[in-house]
Design a protein around this nucleic acid. Sequence first.
DNA 1: ACCTGAACACCGTTCAAGT
DNA 2: ACCTGAACACCGTTCAAGT
Lengths: 226, 226
Amino acid sequence: MVKKSRSSQRRDEALSRDRIIEASIAILDSGGEAGLTFRALSDRLATGPGAIYWHVANKSDLLTAACDAIVDRAMAACVVDATPEANIRAVALAMFDAIDAHPWLGSPRISAPGQLPMVRLLERIGQQVGALGVPREDQWAIVGALLHYILGVAGQNAANGKLAREQGFDRSKFLGEVSAAWSALDPDAYPFTRSVAGQMRDHDDRVDFVAGIDLILGGIARLQRR
Amino acid sequence: MVKKSRSSQRRDEALSRDRIIEASIAILDSGGEAGLTFRALSDRLATGPGAIYWHVANKSDLLTAACDAIVDRAMAACVVDATPEANIRAVALAMFDAIDAHPWLGSPRISAPGQLPMVRLLERIGQQVGALGVPREDQWAIVGALLHYILGVAGQNAANGKLAREQGFDRSKFLGEVSAAWSALDPDAYPFTRSVAGQMRDHDDRVDFVAGIDLILGGIARLQRR
DNA sequence: ACCTGAACACCGTTCAAGT
DNA sequence: ACCTGAACACCGTTCAAGT
């Protein structure tokens, strides 16, 4: 009955690439990458799986398009006009929040240098690094470091969230479990990990994320004074 | 006939978790994450898919174990005893090379903070950051930044390699294609991306990777002088 | 205790056939 | 041009049955 009520909904709009991407985002948000199925998608769109292939090349194309839609929105929502440093922080935080809201953005999906999501980020950060006065020949490496860092945290957060969900914990309970496991490690082999077990439990991901950005910005400043 | 010669090989050793992990690594190296199948694995091991489940919980467990075996080997192979900065660089490069040799290490696989691969890295880098004289309360954020950066590049490299393989190009041809696509972007919307298109083609990943590490180490040095 | 292999409930993708 | 839905060739995982 539940199933019938959904699949018997009349489709009042024609199918389109945009509608498919919108539906994919909704499914990804509620069920993660594993939940996005051509059958689930065609069910939600009241059509057959084959119809989707008219608008979308394959699943990889679909995932990239969904990522790009989110990244585009996040970038558009953060047009700031402050110092280059502040702008970089703002763009980084916009990505952090976007990935927090849509954890499936992590994983190597965005990182595809092919075209869309990655290039948007590259451009935004690149322009700010240029405005920072970094010499042309150093820009590539610096932008790369910032980009890798931002996407690295993205992947990490996504992995945390996914693991927590798989085990049926909420986020803080999951971090508590990890923290407890770290505290139980062999003191001789893992002194450092044990010493930060408490911070693993209590830390604020967002604050640590900005601290890392500032560390890299600090490295740039140091480079320039040389 | 080809298939028969493989599946009719007598199994001279009993099945074991280690033998399964070894076979998985071989399959992952030659066929990527998509190539690792319980059927392909049981074929190579001359057994049935069900037998594998006696030694391994599921595919996720198997992938994590394969990652851990590689990370463990990489860490064991780089016991260096120089300055903390040099040690951090050595550990980072060991990971870079391990991921270059086994691209499937990228993706959120290693990043699982649960237990094994991630903790090994955390500990190694944490000890060196401690030796650097970083105050206790800053260590967590700094180690996090280094770790995220290293794993971020990992994921990136893995994504590049995977994309290149999917399109049947070799690495340099793939980078050339991306570079050409970047050069063709709208000059008003993507000035920075266009300006670095040439570097995308010619750059040396390994050199850029170390440059990023040095940038973070520079940020730490700046922090300490404060 | 360990292994076998058929069976189950799924996938992504294709394609003849419809409108 | 766009959609339908059955069919194909796969998956991961389970489990009765064997040794």
